[in-house]
């Protein structure tokens, strides 16, 4: 009986984990700007998550829990790969996509490039808040840093982005909204 219940929970959990593949990929990609690496990290995250399913005490916090595993997977990757992060440049497949010529895609590519120039800690904070809508407290839990650190990293990240990007925003706002 106990086994049956456990497998029932696991089946439900794996479906919920699988449903998070796309947002996890989006985050992983925004952190490393390498689509193949992002795929690897997401797969590793899912393996680890299901291997540690018993650690998820509060089912409503699945997404944050997965993001925390994702952050650790990336950290482990960089640790094993050496101290260097991948180049802070945009992913080639985006530049080669059919839409690359459109203004909105060019703007998106420029924004990604500027996000790629941020230190990883700032990049993670700004994308967790802006892409996935996590609260500052949740981001602190995911990255295992105090809320004050989250706020200061976010400030620095947005200051840097504002300085480099805000001029581009003039006249682009309609296009930006159209691709959301």
């Amino acid at each position: 009986m106990k086994m049956r219940g456990l497998f029932g929970v696991s089946a439900q959990l794996r479906a919920r984990v699988e449903a998070q593949r796309e947002p996890l990929f989006r985050l992983a990609y925004s952190w490393c700007h390498d689509a193949a690496l992002a795929d690897d990290i997401v797969q590793e995250t899912m393996l680890r998550a299901l291997g540690r399913a018993e650690q998820l005490r509060d089912q409503t916090r699945l997404k944050g829990w997965l993001c925390a595993i994702l952050a650790n997977c990336l950290k482990d990757h960089y640790r094993s790969a050496g101290p260097l992060e991948p180049l802070d440049e945009d992913m080639p497949s985006h530049a080669q996509s059919p839409e690359a010529a459109s203004a909105s895609s060019q703007l998106a590519a420029r924004v990604r490039a500027e996000i790629g120039r941020l230190p990883l800690g700032q990049r993670q904070v700004v994308t967790l808040v802006d892409l996935e809508g996590f609260s500052y407290a949740e981001v602190g839990e995911i990255l295992e840093v105090p809320v004050g650190t989250v706020m200061s990293r976010l400030c620095r990240a947005r200051e840097a982005l504002r300085a480099r990007l805000i001029d581009l925003a003039a006249g682009q706002e309609i296009k930006i909204r159209s691709i959301r």
């Binding site: 593949r21 802006d130 990007l165």
Partner: peptide, 23 residues
């Protein structure tokens, strides 16, 4: 307003990011 625009720009920059490999 600038901050709000920046948030939208960040979100829009990854709107088409999809896993290349399915499950």
């Amino acid at each position: 307003c600038e901050l709000r625009t920046l948030k939208d720009m960040v979100k829009g920059a990854y709107a088409d990011a999809r896993p290349r490999r399915a499950a």
